[in-house]
Protein backbone atom coordinates (compact mmCIF):
# COMPACT_ATOMS: atom_id res chain seq x y z
CA UNK A 1 0.00 0.00 0.00
CA UNK A 2 2.43 2.60 -1.24
CA UNK A 3 1.54 5.96 0.15
CA UNK A 4 -0.43 5.48 3.36
CA UNK A 5 1.19 3.88 6.34
CA UNK A 6 -0.55 1.96 9.05
CA UNK A 7 0.32 2.76 12.62
CA UNK A 8 2.63 -0.25 12.75
CA UNK A 9 4.60 0.88 9.77
CA UNK A 10 4.74 4.48 10.90
CA UNK A 11 5.77 3.90 14.47
CA UNK A 12 7.28 0.45 14.44
CA UNK A 13 7.37 -1.20 17.85
CA UNK A 14 8.01 -4.66 19.13
CA UNK A 15 5.78 -7.72 18.82
CA UNK A 16 4.03 -7.31 22.15
CA UNK A 17 3.13 -3.69 21.64
CA UNK A 18 1.71 -4.27 18.19
CA UNK A 19 -0.31 -7.28 19.33
CA UNK A 20 -1.75 -5.32 22.26
CA UNK A 21 -2.63 -2.52 19.86
CA UNK A 22 -4.29 -5.01 17.55
CA UNK A 23 -6.44 -6.54 20.25
CA UNK A 24 -7.51 -3.20 21.68
CA UNK A 25 -8.24 -1.73 18.25
CA UNK A 26 -10.25 -4.79 17.26
CA UNK A 27 -12.30 -4.42 20.43
CA UNK A 28 -12.89 -0.72 19.88
CA UNK A 29 -13.73 -1.06 16.21
CA UNK A 30 -16.19 -3.88 16.65
CA UNK A 31 -18.04 -2.27 19.50
CA UNK A 32 -18.78 1.29 18.40
CA UNK A 33 -21.80 2.44 20.35
CA UNK A 34 -23.49 5.36 18.60
CA UNK A 35 -25.04 8.28 20.44
CA UNK A 36 -28.72 8.78 19.70
CA UNK A 37 -28.36 12.09 17.85
CA UNK A 38 -30.11 13.30 14.74
CA UNK A 39 -31.49 16.58 13.53
CA UNK A 40 -33.35 16.24 10.25
CA UNK A 41 -33.80 14.06 7.18
CA UNK A 42 -30.47 12.29 7.48
CA UNK A 43 -31.49 11.25 10.98
CA UNK A 44 -34.50 9.38 9.67
CA UNK A 45 -32.32 7.73 7.07
CA UNK A 46 -29.81 6.82 9.75
CA UNK A 47 -32.52 5.29 11.92
CA UNK A 48 -33.80 3.27 9.03
CA UNK A 49 -30.33 2.22 8.07
CA UNK A 50 -29.09 1.34 11.50
CA UNK A 51 -32.14 0.04 13.26
CA UNK A 52 -34.41 -1.38 10.64
CA UNK A 53 -34.14 -5.05 9.66
CA UNK A 54 -33.02 -4.78 6.06
CA UNK A 55 -29.87 -2.80 6.71
CA UNK A 56 -28.95 -3.61 10.25
CA UNK A 57 -26.06 -1.99 12.04
CA UNK A 58 -26.21 -4.65 14.73
CA UNK A 59 -24.27 -6.94 12.43
CA UNK A 60 -21.24 -4.74 13.05
CA UNK A 61 -21.80 -4.67 16.78
CA UNK A 62 -23.06 -1.10 16.85
CA UNK A 63 -26.72 -1.41 17.69
CA UNK A 64 -26.42 -0.48 21.34
CA UNK A 65 -27.31 3.16 20.83
CA UNK A 66 -26.81 4.87 24.16
CA UNK A 67 -28.69 8.05 24.97
CA UNK A 68 -26.05 9.26 27.36
CA UNK A 69 -22.90 10.70 25.74
CA UNK A 70 -20.76 9.33 28.55
CA UNK A 71 -21.46 5.80 27.40
CA UNK A 72 -21.40 6.31 23.63
CA UNK A 73 -18.24 6.30 21.54
CA UNK A 74 -19.52 7.16 18.10
CA UNK A 75 -21.28 10.37 17.18
CA UNK A 76 -23.07 10.03 13.86
CA UNK A 77 -23.99 13.61 12.99
CA UNK A 78 -27.06 13.22 10.87
CA UNK A 79 -28.93 16.31 9.84
CA UNK A 80 -28.54 20.02 9.30
CA UNK A 81 -26.65 21.83 12.04
CA UNK A 82 -27.73 25.41 12.62
CA UNK A 83 -26.02 28.09 14.67
CA UNK A 84 -28.28 27.52 17.63
CA UNK A 85 -27.48 23.81 17.68
CA UNK A 86 -23.74 24.20 17.26
CA UNK A 87 -22.77 24.88 20.90
CA UNK A 88 -25.05 22.07 22.08
CA UNK A 89 -23.48 19.67 19.61
CA UNK A 90 -20.05 20.70 20.81
CA UNK A 91 -21.18 20.11 24.40
CA UNK A 92 -22.32 16.60 23.51
CA UNK A 93 -19.01 15.90 21.84
CA UNK A 94 -17.04 17.17 24.82
CA UNK A 95 -19.12 15.03 27.17
CA UNK A 96 -18.33 11.82 25.33
CA UNK A 97 -15.69 9.64 26.92
CA UNK A 98 -12.54 9.14 24.92
CA UNK A 99 -11.81 7.45 22.55
CA UNK A 100 -14.61 9.07 20.58
CA UNK A 101 -15.22 9.02 16.86
CA UNK A 102 -17.33 11.19 14.57
CA UNK A 103 -19.02 10.28 11.31
CA UNK A 104 -20.58 13.21 9.47
CA UNK A 105 -23.37 11.99 7.20
CA UNK A 106 -25.10 13.95 4.52
CA UNK A 107 -24.30 17.03 2.54
CA UNK A 108 -25.42 19.40 5.28
CA UNK A 109 -22.72 18.29 7.65
CA UNK A 110 -20.05 18.25 4.97
CA UNK A 111 -20.59 21.65 3.46
CA UNK A 112 -23.99 23.01 4.35
CA UNK A 113 -25.81 21.01 1.71
CA UNK A 114 -28.72 22.68 -0.09
CA UNK A 115 -28.70 25.51 2.45
CA UNK A 116 -25.38 27.12 1.65
CA UNK A 117 -26.67 30.21 -0.08
CA UNK A 118 -28.69 32.94 1.57
CA UNK A 119 -29.00 31.15 4.87
CA UNK A 120 -28.44 33.23 7.96
CA UNK A 121 -28.04 30.28 10.27
CA UNK A 122 -27.09 26.96 8.65
CA UNK A 123 -23.50 26.05 9.33
CA UNK A 124 -21.52 25.34 6.21
CA UNK A 125 -20.14 22.03 7.32
CA UNK A 126 -19.73 20.63 10.79
CA UNK A 127 -15.95 20.60 10.66
CA UNK A 128 -16.02 24.14 12.03
CA UNK A 129 -17.47 22.80 15.24
CA UNK A 130 -15.75 19.52 16.00
CA UNK A 131 -13.15 17.22 14.40
CA UNK A 132 -14.66 14.72 11.99
CA UNK A 133 -13.15 11.34 11.18
CA UNK A 134 -15.27 10.14 8.27
CA UNK A 135 -17.52 12.04 5.89
CA UNK A 136 -20.34 10.18 4.15
CA UNK A 137 -21.64 12.13 1.16
CA UNK A 138 -25.21 11.99 -0.05
CA UNK A 139 -28.42 13.85 0.47
CA UNK A 140 -29.34 11.66 2.23
CA UNK A 141 -26.75 8.91 1.81
CA UNK A 142 -27.98 5.43 1.02
CA UNK A 143 -27.77 2.98 3.93
CA UNK A 144 -25.05 1.16 2.05
CA UNK A 145 -23.15 4.45 1.93
CA UNK A 146 -23.49 4.94 5.66
CA UNK A 147 -22.24 1.43 6.27
CA UNK A 148 -19.31 2.00 3.98
CA UNK A 149 -18.48 5.00 6.13
CA UNK A 150 -18.78 2.89 9.26
CA UNK A 151 -16.56 0.20 7.81
CA UNK A 152 -14.04 2.82 6.76
CA UNK A 153 -14.01 4.06 10.33
CA UNK A 154 -13.50 0.51 11.56
CA UNK A 155 -10.60 0.10 9.16
CA UNK A 156 -9.17 3.38 10.35
CA UNK A 157 -9.35 2.22 13.93
CA UNK A 158 -7.96 -1.23 13.32
CA UNK A 159 -4.93 -0.21 11.31
CA UNK A 160 -4.45 3.41 12.22
CA UNK A 161 -4.56 3.73 15.98
CA UNK A 162 -2.07 2.94 18.63
CA UNK A 163 -1.77 3.39 22.36
CA UNK A 164 1.45 5.31 21.92
CA UNK A 165 -0.29 8.16 20.11
CA UNK A 166 -3.78 8.43 21.59
CA UNK A 167 -6.13 10.67 19.67
CA UNK A 168 -4.15 10.50 16.42
CA UNK A 169 -5.91 8.85 13.49
CA UNK A 170 -4.46 7.62 10.26
CA UNK A 171 -7.00 7.83 7.49
CA UNK A 172 -7.11 5.07 4.88
CA UNK A 173 -7.12 7.58 2.04
CA UNK A 174 -5.93 5.13 -0.53
CA UNK A 175 -9.18 3.21 -0.26
CA UNK A 176 -10.85 6.22 -1.88
CA UNK A 177 -9.36 5.13 -5.16
CA UNK A 178 -11.93 3.66 -7.56
CA UNK A 179 -11.75 -0.09 -7.84
CA UNK A 180 -9.38 -1.40 -10.43
CA UNK A 181 -7.17 1.69 -10.41
CA UNK A 182 -3.93 1.81 -8.53
CA UNK A 183 -1.56 4.58 -7.63
CA UNK A 184 0.77 3.53 -10.46
CA UNK A 185 -1.99 4.05 -13.03
CA UNK A 186 -2.54 7.54 -11.73
CA UNK A 187 1.15 8.27 -11.67
CA UNK A 188 1.70 7.13 -15.26
CA UNK A 189 -1.32 9.01 -16.52
CA UNK A 190 -0.06 12.14 -14.75
CA UNK A 191 3.32 11.69 -16.37
CA UNK A 192 1.87 11.37 -19.84
CA UNK A 193 -0.33 14.43 -19.32
CA UNK A 194 2.59 16.49 -18.06
CA UNK A 195 4.72 15.37 -20.98
CA UNK A 196 2.02 16.26 -23.48
CA UNK A 197 1.73 19.65 -21.87
CA UNK A 198 5.43 20.25 -21.81
CA UNK A 199 5.73 20.94 -25.54
CA UNK A 200 4.83 24.47 -26.57
CA UNK A 201 4.81 25.85 -30.10
CA UNK A 202 5.92 29.42 -29.43
CA UNK A 203 5.32 30.78 -32.92
CA UNK A 204 1.77 29.43 -33.09
CA UNK A 205 1.05 30.93 -29.73
CA UNK A 206 2.44 34.30 -30.79
CA UNK A 207 0.23 34.37 -33.83
CA UNK A 208 -2.75 33.41 -31.71
CA UNK A 209 -2.33 36.32 -29.36
CA UNK A 210 -3.97 39.53 -30.55
CA UNK A 211 -2.30 42.92 -30.31
CA UNK A 212 -2.63 44.41 -26.82
CA UNK A 213 -4.51 47.65 -26.25
CA UNK A 214 -3.20 50.40 -24.04
CA UNK A 215 -6.47 52.17 -23.28
CA UNK A 216 -9.83 51.23 -21.92
CA UNK A 217 -11.96 52.82 -24.66
Amino acid sequence: MGVEKSADQALGGNYLLTRVDQVLNMARANSLWPLTFGTSCCAIEMMMATGAPRHDIARFGAEVARPSPRQADLLIIAGTIVKRMAPRLRTLYEQMAEPRYVIATGACTISGGPFIYNSYTTLRGVEDVLPVDVFVPGCPPRPEGLFYGLLTLQRMIKSGETLRQPGVRRKPVMSALPPGISMDDIRSEMESLLEADSEVDVEARRRQLGWPSSTNT
Binding site: F60, G61, E98
Partner: peptide, 25 residues
Protein backbone atom coordinates in the same frame (compact mmCIF):
# COMPACT_ATOMS: atom_id res chain seq x y z
CA UNK B 1 -32.84 -8.77 12.12
CA UNK B 2 -29.64 -10.71 12.52
CA UNK B 3 -27.85 -9.19 15.48
CA UNK B 4 -24.07 -9.15 15.83
CA UNK B 5 -22.49 -11.20 13.08
CA UNK B 6 -18.94 -10.07 12.55
CA UNK B 7 -17.00 -10.72 15.72
CA UNK B 8 -16.39 -14.43 15.78
CA UNK B 9 -18.68 -16.98 14.12
CA UNK B 10 -22.16 -15.50 14.13
CA UNK B 11 -21.03 -12.80 16.52
CA UNK B 12 -20.24 -15.09 19.44
CA UNK B 13 -17.38 -12.96 20.73
CA UNK B 14 -19.24 -9.65 20.48
CA UNK B 15 -19.46 -9.26 24.23
CA UNK B 16 -15.74 -9.89 24.56
CA UNK B 17 -15.14 -6.89 22.30
CA UNK B 18 -17.67 -4.87 24.28
CA UNK B 19 -16.03 -5.73 27.59
CA UNK B 20 -12.53 -4.86 26.42
CA UNK B 21 -13.79 -1.60 24.99
CA UNK B 22 -15.54 -0.66 28.21
CA UNK B 23 -12.42 -1.47 30.21
CA UNK B 24 -10.24 0.92 28.24
CA UNK B 25 -12.72 3.81 28.05
Amino acid sequence: RLGPMRVGPHGLFQTVADSIKLLIK
